[in-house]
Design a protein around this nucleic acid. Sequence first.
DNA 1: TGCACTGTGTGACTTAGTCACATACATTTA
DNA 2: TAAATGTATGTGACTAAGTCACACAGTGCA
Lengths: 228, 228
Amino acid sequence: MITDTNTITRIIEVFDFLQKSDSDFIQSFFNRVNRIELPASQPICQQGTQCSHLALVISGSAKVYKVSENGREITLYRIGPGESCILTASCIMNGEPFPAYAVSEEPIEALLINTTDVIRWTDDTAAWRNYLFGLINSRLSEVIGVVEEVAFRRVDRRLASYLIQRSDSTNGLIETTHQVIASDLGTSREVVSRILKDLEQQQMISTTRGAIRISNRARLNEKSGETQ
Amino acid sequence: MITDTNTITRIIEVFDFLQKSDSDFIQSFFNRVNRIELPASQPICQQGTQCSHLALVISGSAKVYKVSENGREITLYRIGPGESCILTASCIMNGEPFPAYAVSEEPIEALLINTTDVIRWTDDTAAWRNYLFGLINSRLSEVIGVVEEVAFRRVDRRLASYLIQRSDSTNGLIETTHQVIASDLGTSREVVSRILKDLEQQQMISTTRGAIRISNRARLNEKSGETQ
DNA sequence: TGCACTGTGTGACTTAGTCACATACATTTA
DNA sequence: TAAATGTATGTGACTAAGTCACACAGTGCA
């Protein structure tokens, strides 16, 4: 249950479907949900477990990823403010175990909702239902995008795209390790190291321990767009 | 509109959600839907187009797949009796273009539903809503499975699994070409040819033009289960 | 200063994908 | 029936990607 008016206002701002809901639903919504905070790098869902709650992210971010037997990882998608770990909802609806892992990246502030409320609101409330449908649909599109990437695109091009994307919000400096990049892309650390070295020799980037700086964004972008 | 009692009975048998629906919905359902037939290998949805109808498959099968710029393909999932091209529903709900291609494999008998009916029934009818949710959820799981396969498993193991699966219903004989297998797995024809040759030399299969016969299912199954 | 930990570099090797062909079987056409 | 055409498969040479084993470098702490 959430009563603080400031918090409620802040939450309504983040979640579109609440703005479209009537006051009855909003009232019962805040009566039933709980707010939690999680530090960064906290496991949220384990592959193969049953989910008892649905989490809606207010602030911070999480990622959903797969792990292979020999330890390689690939990120399926990320969850940001206003979104939810829709795979959880999917598991709640179908009673299936969670097919991946989820972990917080930045510290997370989230709403926890009981499975019974999730199901009830899906039946009762159009705005909530559309929110869930919309999310699960965009996840499906995103994961199909991952299939396309992994199956068809060369790793150097994918890495170039990745660097372009990540540098958008950080003014050309990306603070991360080769291993983290490899885990996002679903490849191995050595491959990332080698390609980064190539990009450095072609003077598109410069690298230091724990960071990459984009030095020629235009050429990197060109590379990311090359076919094959 | 469908009036023939036999057809209606047959359709209700295939679609679970109709068995769980009240007679009012069933009546309006058969008032609003139309039955169509499609031959094999008929394109159903084109990537990038808008969908105006949702198709529910009564009999036959279709596949949903991605195509790369240089012509390689990968199958995302198949649609069988009682299922629907849920990506279409997803596009209808979100107003997004279809992110892949769909084509009939066997001749298809299907129900066509207007987008307006799809949306209305999703609001009105719990059984229909749960049907859609269930389908889209299982598609999401399947596509995540494809990501896992492509990102982590070796092609020879994946091919072994594929042969095992396909031979289940056909008594050990698989009538198909290397190109078709390659398109399902998201690899190239040459790779499939070479691996099949290996498997043949290891006497797990025998191959002829247009067909593969499983000769040692146990060993092939063993190979399919090997880690990495 | 020495030590442990994490991050990166590298060679050698295997697996996978591409390209350019050659060859083999099947169906139609002359 | 032979030739022509089309489809299916085989193969070598090459590039790209993943694996393994290990070297080495930067960072922080004892």
